[in-house]
Design a binder for these strands. Structure first.
Lengths: 160, 160
DNA sequence: CCTTGACCTTCCCACTATGGGAATCCCCAT
DNA sequence: ATGGGGATTCCCATAGTGGGAAGGTCAAGG
């Protein structure tokens, strides 16, 4: 099986296959005499595992852990669960942050006439205009503050 | 006002000030004889505007638009509102996506004993193990599929 | 046998925003 | 004059992913 076939069989792009190998998420693939990478059905299984984990938003680092546990028959399910729980916590933090932004922006948009006139509460708010800050829309202000930015959410954060 | 003072007054790091200038979000700052950038109170206003917009998760591109509208007395509030609404839609898409991931992962974690035994439904699911795929936890499956990845959410997606 | 096209290889670049750090220079106070 | 703090530019790194160029390979058909 060459890289294209492994890619098609796993749903992971050939580009990513090479990348995962490079960063050590996958062991170095065997090569044909001509230098082509060779994959087995077992490799494809691992790739599918990785792809599903990516679909759940897990970072490459966490996936490394999970793949390690997966291939370790001595693992304890507690270890696996911990990794999952950590990721859920990060997802929660991210969701909270985005939701706070969304709420604020939605309220501002709701307050905007959206007509031909230049008057606009959205701009007014961004201007920091209202002299008493406590009257600005804030909605769990701290959550979306720069420092509050949660730990890394991976791939899905990048526009395709 | 030099770059450090403008940074302190606006909450935007000096590094970002230079970057914003480089990418054209800010006009090129005037310089002293020695090459130091010089900022006015008006510049600081713009910087605060930008910072607040970033706090709401708006991309640099959208902020460019908003700053343009902000400084245009002929603007229509409808234009501003449209930009805001677009961003809300992207936030919604992202939130949906993350929520779907979260739900799936939470269910898997709930189903995991989390003890010393190796048996683990999380790994089992990632394996794609269950022969009948419709029994796998999915929860709005399409939403978190790669193709479903929403349009770009900016900065906050990056781990500090 | 040779061409053609599909595939593989490596290497570099781009993206989003942001931070870190080095080398060098400037300004002000002692 | 000297020292410290700040400014300048330039390069690098991040997390994943895609795009593309330049060149080698393989298989099928003429």
């Amino acid at each position: 099986m060459n890289i294209g076939q492994a890619s098609a069989a796993s749903g992971v792009s050939a580009k990513m296959l090479r990348y995962y190998e490079e960063i050590g998420l996958l062991p170095k693939a065997a090569r044909t005499g001509a230098g082509y990478r060779v994959y087995s059905a077992k490799d494809v299984n691992t790739l599918r595992f990785i792809r599903r984990a990516r679909d759940l938003g897990l970072s490459i680092e966490r996936i490394k852990l999970l793949v390690g546990l997966w291939q370790d028959r001595e693992r304890s399910s507690a270890d696996v669960k911990r990794v999952a729980i950590e990721h859920v916590a990060e997802l929660d933090a991210k969701i909270l942050e985005l939701t706070a932004m969304r709420e604020t922006l939605q309220e501002l948009a709701d307050a905007c006439h959206g007509d031909h006139r230049p008057d606009c509460p959205i701009l007014h708010d961004l201007e920091g205009g209202s002299s008493s800050p406590e009257h600005r829309f804030t909605v769990t202000k701290d959550v979306h503050r720069r420092k509050g930015a949660a730990a890394g959410l991976p791939a899905e954060c990048h526009a395709g």
